[in-house]
Write a protein that binds this DNA or RNA. Structure first.
Lengths: 207, 207
DNA sequence: CTCTAGATTGACTGGTCAGTCAGCCGGGAT
DNA sequence: ATCCCGGCTGACTGACCAGTCAATCTAGAG
């Protein structure tokens, strides 16, 4: 081995793929671009991966599993439902904050690409949505959320909002300073839990 | 002319493009597929259009202009804000109901494809979002909506939800009977206006 | 020192399509 | 009758790129 346990080259290629896919988009990213970015010969990519697609699949699944895991833990935790939703929003937004390139690739090329890769990973994606639906459903059973909103529908609105938010950051159509992330976390939950119409009586939700 | 004013062939090609793009996705749709679907020679497509891209651009812009127009009219109309949002949701959902193929192409290939065509049409897309934001903002000024929710943010949640909904129908992951459309229209507005948490006092919204 | 297996290299192949172009066809004008 | 012209045709070209493969390298085992 040149200077590191072989697996590091594999990782280097995967990391290069993140950068290149984020910069050019999966479709217009050439395998040769990934190899160049990783400082590796073209052929080596095919030593570690079966295809260009496989790289993206792996990037997605690796990361998405963490989200599902985190969501499950949040669901089980013993806090008010509002905080559970905040927890999920927090996890996703922090993921973006720490690894914007990877998240960009996941959102743009998989989550929002319902046609191609989104189709392949639909079961995984659904799983995350369903966990939010279950959080809502649990809350309804406990009488903490109105029970005349369909939980699946609520999850749809929740993920729709977050996806829209990330898309805005990804394409720099909304500001992305530290405050903005924090503000966004707050607003998603507030908007979804409290709604747009005024509430006659303060529910006294001590921040 | 063979049998119709020449412009009809142009329309036929555009209609064929809708069908083919909806069926195969823009990327894997070949220009020859469009020509075949339209029952027209390959070269004729390039007689009427400069490129494959131009066809999609035209399909999108043509239709999106209607949405923007409708949104402007709804904003100006003299009804409660809740009904304005319902109006926009109604317009979009009815568009899908009547021309699912065209809407599928618009959503999948442009609106959600923030990378490629979405980028090109971002100004147009934004315009529609901003109109919803203005509807919310107007309502806040009039004291009909809480003013501690950012209007742009509310618009984001609104469109995020609708897009998610359409995506669900497009990929048949949620049921799409007549009732479902009507139910969805109601739920979007209810969820967004009333929120998930219970309201201590009935606002007496006579459905 | 030699052997072997896995890591690494990059030129090459095969297939795919968007877009071009040289020419045909049919109907109206003269 | 003949010319003209825009609509129309479809074979062809050029560019692009994922994936292959035979050859080379390197390091540790014997």
């Amino acid at each position: 081995m040149s200077q590191a346990p072989a697996a590091d080259k594999r990782r280097a290629i995967l990391d290069a793929a993140i950068t290149v896919f984020a910069r050019q988009g999966f479709h217009s990213a050439r395998v040769s671009d990934v190899a160049a970015e990783a400082g590796v010969a073209y052929g080596l990519v095919y030593h570690y991966f079966d295809s260009k697609d496989q790289m993206l699949n792996e990037l997605f699944s690796e990361r998405w599993a963490l989200l599902v895991e985190a969501s499950q833990e949040i669901r089980r935790s013993d806090v008010p439902p509002r905080e559970k939703l905040a927890g999920v929003a927090n996890f996703i937004i922090e993921s973006y904050r720490h690894e914007p390139e990877l998240m960009k690739v996941i959102i743009v090329e998989v989550t929002r690409a319902a046609n191609s890769f989104g189709r392949t990973h639909l079961p995984e994606i659904r799983q995350a949505y369903e966990l939010v639906a279950e959080i809502v459903s649990d809350a309804q059973v406990a009488g903490e959320f109105r029970d005349d909103v369909d939980p699946d529908f609520a999850a749809m609105v929740f993920y729709g909002a977050i996806e829209q938010l990330l898309t805005g950051w990804i394409f720099e159509s909304i500001p992305a300073a530290d405050d903005d992330y924090e503000r966004a976390k707050r607003l998603v939950v507030e908007t979804i839990c409290d709604g747009l119409e005024p509430r006659p009586v303060s529910d006294a939700v001590a921040g």
